[in-house]
Amino acid sequence: MIRFERVAKRYPNGREAIAGVSFDVARGEMVFLTGRSGAGKSTVLKLIALLERPTRGVVTVNGQSTGPLPARKIPAFRRQIGVVFQDHKLLVDRPVFDNVALPLVVAGTPLRELDKRVRAALDQVGLLGKERLLPLELSIGEQQRVGIARAVISRPAVLIADEPTGNLDPELALEVMNVFRRFQEVGTTVMVATHDMHLVREFGKREIVLEGGHVRGVEDVRVPTVGAAAP
């Protein structure tokens, strides 16, 4: 589902964020992307969401190579990927409903369907009934979950998250991570960048470890998960 082949990314300022990264994530798999700050985790996620293009190598997502994709096809490409940010990037002047509905609105989903699907997405992250609140009226954990609801509402094939638990206490972090696992269990390919090793161990998913722009290793600590989707 996500394939990196000897991918390198050098930013205009000359910094090489990743140098020759290769890995493969199967359809319906959940993997963790770990490593210290500056190891290149964010760059890998940006390359997947086509916020950046690779300098060398090939990034393939859902069968599409991102390198040669023309700019006008980027919106359609991004609609198959849900992105969750550490700072959640919610629009603070819009109610929860509008924030969550945005991906459907840009995709032209009929209005009568919006309401149903926004409620469903909020239900999945345990926030049903908070549609009319503004993001700042919610707790940090709830805001993060609104971000997740927005990422999954268009039922993307791929869900990526950059440090989604960075601002949360261990209990909330576990709760958020469980939300991701539930989406993986229904067939979504999930990639979570995190440095919370404790949490990673607890989940027992495959782990891609980045160090200094390279893949240091892939730890396969998979334990049988009930209901895990076959690749």
């Binding site: 969401a49 919106p75 991004r78 609609r79 990037k89 629009l91 840009v106 995709a107």
Partner: peptide, 16 residues
């Protein structure tokens, strides 16, 4: 700006 960035992020076209 923030709103435009987020809209593009979730697949909003330039026209939208």
């Amino acid at each position: 700006r923030a709103e435009i960035e987020v809209t593009k992020l979730v697949g909003g076209t330039n026209a939208f």
